Simulated assay, not measured.
Amino acid sequence: AGTGLLAVRPGEEPWSVAEIAEARAELESEVLLLRAEISASGEAISGLMRDSGDGAGDDQADTGSKNITREHELALAANAREMLVQAERALERLEAGTYGLCENCGKPIGKARMQAFPRATLCVECKQRQERR
């Protein structure tokens, strides 16, 4: 996407080539970080599953503690996968030139919001409506 092609709100400066490159670099590093996190989490979960099968001699507290740890790891992995999908989608939108447009109403999300939250897909108004539901 060339400069000036990405949506901004009225009164905002157009995206510069450097700002677009910065957004892309931030999203790409986030994708790499999340993929590594998901991989490590998968290994941790596999280890926890192996350990839980070998519960001989565990009392209820040990078993409960292992279950809580496993559920926590599963929740973290699910969250990381969701963030990865969002980051990958943001990169696709950056390439397509639709980065910074609200996926709900189609209006510009705003450059300032995109720089603060590079994975944002909704403008503030639509995000607030979604959270009130």
Rank of each mutant, 00 (worst) to 15 (best):
A1S: 15
G2Q: 13
G2D: 09
T3Y: 08
L5N: 02
L6E: 07
L6V: 11
L6G: 05
A7Y: 13
A7P: 09
V8T: 14
V8R: 11
V8Y: 06
R9K: 15
G11D: 03
E13C: 02
P14I: 02
P14N: 08
W15N: 02
V17A: 14
A18G: 01
E19M: 05
E22K: 13
E22L: 11
E22W: 08
E22N: 11
R24Q: 10
R24A: 02
A25W: 09
E26Y: 12
L27T: 04
E28I: 09
E30M: 08
E30Y: 09
E30C: 09
E30H: 09
V31L: 12
L32P: 00
L34C: 07
L34I: 05
L34N: 04
I38W: 10
I38T: 03
G42W: 06
E43C: 03
A44D: 02
S46Y: 09
G47I: 01
L48R: 14
M49E: 15
D51V: 05
D51C: 05
S52R: 12
D54F: 14
D54S: 14
D58C: 03
D59G: 12
D59C: 05
Q60A: 15
Q60W: 12
A61Q: 12
S65Y: 08
R70W: 03
E71V: 02
E71P: 00
E71K: 11
L74G: 04
L74P: 00
A75N: 09
L76V: 08
L76M: 15
A77V: 02
A78R: 15
N79L: 13
A80H: 12
R81H: 07
R81K: 14
M83N: 06
M83V: 05
L84T: 12
L84C: 09
L84Y: 10
V85L: 12
Q86M: 12
Q86P: 00
Q86E: 15
E88K: 10
R89G: 10
R89Y: 06
A90D: 04
A90C: 06
L91M: 03
E92M: 04
E92K: 10
R93A: 11
L94Q: 03
A96D: 09
A96H: 08
G97N: 02
G97A: 05
T98R: 07
T98G: 00
Y99N: 06
L101Q: 12
C102H: 03
E103H: 10
E103P: 00
N104C: 11
C105K: 05
G106V: 03
G106W: 05
K107F: 05
G110D: 03
K111P: 01
A112M: 06
Q115E: 04
A116Y: 09
P118Q: 07
P118K: 08
R119K: 13
R119F: 01
R119T: 13
R119I: 06
C123W: 08
C123T: 04
E125W: 09
C126W: 04
C126P: 00
C126F: 04
K127F: 00
Q128M: 08
Q128A: 09
R129P: 01
Q130D: 14
Q130A: 15
R132V: 01
R132E: 13
R133I: 06
